[in-house]
Simulated assay, not measured.
Amino acid sequence: MLKVMVIEDELTLRKGLVWTTPWDTFGCEVVGECADGREGAELIRKLQPDIVVTDIRMPGLTGIEMMQEVRTVVDTEFIFITGYSDFKYAKAAIDLGAQGFILKPIDDEELEAILLKAADAVRRKKRYDLAMATQASGIPELYGRLASYENGRPNDRYLQAAIDYINCHIERNFSLKDIADHLYISESYLSKLFKSKTSYTFLEYCTHHRLKKAADLLTDPAIKVYEVAERVGYPDSRYFSTLFKKWTGLTPTEFRSYYMQE
Score class of each variant (00 low, 15 high):
L2Y: 08
K3C: 02
V4H: 07
M5H: 01
I7F: 01
D9G: 05
L11D: 01
T12Y: 10
R14C: 10
K15I: 02
V18M: 11
T21K: 09
T25P: 00
G27H: 11
G27Y: 05
V30Q: 03
E33R: 05
C34S: 08
C34K: 03
G37W: 06
R38E: 02
E39F: 03
E39P: 00
A41W: 12
L43Y: 11
K46F: 07
I51A: 02
I51R: 08
I51D: 01
V52C: 10
V53E: 00
T54K: 08
T54G: 02
T54D: 01
T54Q: 06
P59K: 14
L61A: 09
G63T: 09
I64M: 04
I64P: 02
I64S: 03
E69M: 06
R71S: 13
R71Q: 12
V73L: 08
V74F: 06
V74K: 04
E77V: 09
E77Y: 07
I79E: 00
I81P: 03
I81F: 07
T82Y: 11
S85D: 09
D86G: 04
F87H: 08
A93I: 07
A93D: 04
L96D: 06
A98S: 15
G100S: 09
F101Y: 15
I102A: 08
I102N: 03
L103R: 06
D107H: 09
L111T: 00
L111S: 01
E112W: 03
A113M: 07
A118H: 08
V122K: 07
D129L: 14
L130T: 11
Q135Y: 14
G138Y: 05
E141P: 04
L142Q: 12
L142H: 11
Y143N: 15
G144D: 12
G144N: 09
G144Q: 09
R153A: 03
R153Q: 12
P154T: 04
P154A: 08
N155S: 13
D156T: 12
R157G: 06
A161H: 06
A162S: 14
I163R: 09
Y165T: 06
I166W: 07
I166E: 00
N167C: 02
C168W: 06
C168M: 13
H169I: 08
I170A: 01
F174Y: 13
S175C: 12
K177W: 04
K177V: 11
D178P: 00
I179D: 00
D181N: 15
H182S: 10
L183G: 00
L183W: 02
E187K: 11
L190P: 04
S191N: 05
S191I: 01
S191T: 00
L193K: 07
S196M: 10
K197S: 14
K197C: 12
S199H: 12
F202I: 04
F202A: 03
L203V: 13
C206T: 14
R210T: 05
K213V: 08
A214M: 06
D216L: 02
L217E: 07
L217D: 05
L218E: 04
T219P: 01
T219D: 00
A222G: 13
A229S: 13
E230V: 13
P235T: 15
P235F: 15
R238I: 14
F240H: 11
L243V: 13
L250Q: 14
T251S: 14
E254K: 11
R256I: 08
S257A: 15
Y259E: 05
